[in-house]
């Protein structure tokens, strides 16, 4: 919150969706999504499960191909090319990679490659995509692991690490490619509760350094403290959006109020001070 005013000054649009829709068969999962994300902005997507927030995030990375509308990454159309007759055709993989070259993604299930060591996981894309020399890649990978506090685990196998450590490695793997925008798909949902903190800490640090971030999350505390803007999704629509203080304190729509109500009820059963009370800490 505190640094957001300074961050906003940057002003260029990093990621934009215009009238984007997505269907699975007859079922419309996303309907007419309009969204624009500025440089250094941290946007959190919240909503009940099945609301389409993960699909939205995955569509922004073209891991799901959206059906209508457009997504632009730093002004370039993502996933489709204009054919000579004016219709659009799916981009070739090389073009797709090129458009999202500045985009990093962190998954709920970490998706580390289990046949490579932690260090090799981070080095792989540096070597094969960036074409770096082995020494340089090694140095950069170690430095990035250091940043997420896992340099000493460089030689370990991913599956020997705790979930929290694995997710930090996954963040490092993405971060090493020096993305300008990072997408997080429920990065802490697969973690044991006591491991959530270490991952959120790393993400918060990234936010403070000015990384542009889009985060799908159930961690309302994180959204409240770190996000510049929170989007509430329900049934494939963006129902409400705004700064977290307004959204959490004064929800306009009954659905958001109900969602937050459920959330508070679940989380405050045994806690004297639910996370939302600390919004402005």
């Amino acid at each position: 919150m505190n640094q957001s005013a300074a961050k906003r000054g940057a002003g260029d649009v990093m990621l934009e969706a215009r009238g984007m829709s997505k269907r699975f068969g007859d079922h419309t999962v996303l309907q007419d999504i309009n969204l624009s994300i500025q440089r250094s902005e941290v946007v959190c997507l919240i909503g009940p499960s099945g609301s389409g927030k993960s699909t939205l995030l995955r569509s922004l990375a073209f891991l799901e191909n959206y059906d209508d509308g457009e997504v632009f990454v730093e002004g370039e159309l993502l996933g489709y090319d204009r054919a000579s007759d004016g219709r659009r055709v799916r981009s070739r993989p090389s073009r797709l990679s090129d458009v999202r070259r500045n985009m990093g993604m962190v998954f709920q299930q970490f998706n580390l490659w289990p046949h490579l060591s932690v260090l090799e996981n981070v080095m792989e894309a540096l070597l094969r995509v960036r074409g770096m020399k082995r020494d340089d890649a090694h140095r950069l990978a170690l430095a990035t692991l250091e940043k997420v506090g896992l340099a000493e685990k460089a030689g370990a196998w991913p599956n020997r690490l705790s979930g929290g450590q694995q997710q930090r490695v996954a963040i490092a793997r993405s971060l090493a490619m020096s993305p300008a925008i990072m997408l997080f798909d429920e990065p802490t949902s697969a973690l044991d509760p006591e491991l959530v903190g270490e991952v959120l800490q790393v993400m918060r640090q990234l936010a403070e350094e000015g990384m542009t971030m889009v985060v799908v999350t159930h961690e309302m505390g994180f959204a409240a403290r770190v996000a510049d803007r929170v989007l509430f999704l329900d049934q494939g629509h963006i129902v409400e959006q705004g700064p977290p203080t307004r959204l959490f304190r004064h929800p306009q729509s009954p659905r958001l109020a109900q969602f937050l109500g459920n959330y508070l009820e679940r989380n405050s059963l045994f806690e004297a001070a639910p996370a939302l009370n600390r919004v402005d800490d």
């Binding site: 990375a61 999202r100 985009m103 998954f107 793997r173």
Partner: peptide, 18 residues
Amino acid sequence: IPRGQQEAAAMLGMTPWQ
């Protein structure tokens, strides 16, 4: 092999062959 691993690789810019 879990699809997510391919997605992670694709997001890092690896080609289908890689």
